[in-house]
Computed example of a mutant assay.
Amino acid sequence: MSSTLVIIFLVFGGVLALQFYKGRKLNAMLMVHYIRGFENVLKPKDKDYIYLGGTVGFKARYQLQNKFIRDVDLTLTMLPRQSFLWLPFSYVMRGGDRLYIVVSPKFRVRRDAHLIRRMFHRFGAKIKEEKDLNKENLKVNDTEFIALYKEKSDVLNLLKLLENSFDLKRVGQVSLNFENNTIYCIVKPDPQKTPRELEKFLENLPKTFENWTYFSEE
């Protein structure tokens, strides 16, 4: 092996090592930042965390002192910033970090409805009840969604909820799930904005669906 190849391998190995440590540190810092932000705005009465492979992300369950919402489950999955080789492929496939939000309300979700940003799911969204739902394309400014619904008012309410809570371009999907009585949302998180966006999402949720009036306080 020539001395030139040895130098190339050494330099490349050094780059990989540097990226590994810098990437792990950045992901760890982002995780701490998100956790502090979520706890500050939600002020949960109880909380539970599961870390996913160190700096891959985390799962959090927050029990809230809220008239309309029982608890919120968050799953943050992060780009492999520690991997110089895999990071570009992951970014192309995922488009960035993802925050999965599952809200368990104290009121009954009456029907299934879904808004899915076009091309968000590379291999298509898996909606179990899709064959029983109406399908329509909706465009808001420059953002296109696929709407699945039994009653169109439900997806229009979901759209209103998103517009009042998040930047639509960072929303991948939002769903009303009748079977498990949850509201589900996927967003591309922003370290500076998302804690406050999540707070607005939870505040706007019961206002948006105020016609579902049979709340059951605990």
Rank of each mutant, 00 (worst) to 15 (best):
K43S: 03
R117V: 07
K59G: 05
F58P: 06
Y21D: 13
K128S: 01
E130K: 05
M119A: 15
L76K: 05
T143P: 00
T75C: 07
M29H: 15
E130Q: 03
K126M: 09
L79T: 06
L115K: 01
Q65S: 03
F123T: 14
G23M: 12
R36L: 02
G13E: 13
Q63F: 05
K126N: 04
V72H: 05
R122N: 13
V56P: 10
K135H: 11
G96Q: 07
D46C: 00
N40C: 04
L99Q: 09
A28Q: 15
R70E: 04
F58R: 10
G14A: 14
I7Y: 15
V109K: 01
P105G: 07
Y100N: 03
Y91T: 07
A28G: 14
V32H: 14
W86M: 11
M78C: 07
A125T: 09
S104T: 08
V102Y: 10
E129V: 08
V72G: 04
L26I: 15
G53W: 04
Y21I: 14
R111H: 02
L16W: 13
T4Y: 14
T77I: 03
K135P: 03
M78P: 06
Y49Q: 09
Q65H: 00
R122M: 13
G124N: 03
G54K: 11
L52T: 02
D71Y: 00
K106Y: 08
K59I: 04
H114M: 01
T4S: 15
N27M: 12
G13K: 11
K135F: 10
E136S: 08
L87V: 09
L42M: 02
F107Y: 05
P44C: 08
V92T: 12
V102F: 06
K25I: 15
R36W: 07
N40D: 09
G14N: 13
V32W: 12
F145D: 00
N141A: 04
V41C: 07
N141P: 02
L115M: 05
I8P: 10
E39H: 07
G96W: 04
K45P: 06
K25V: 14
K47H: 01
G57H: 06
R70A: 01
G57C: 08
R70W: 03
K47G: 08
E130Y: 08
K139M: 02
I8F: 15
A17H: 13
E39S: 03
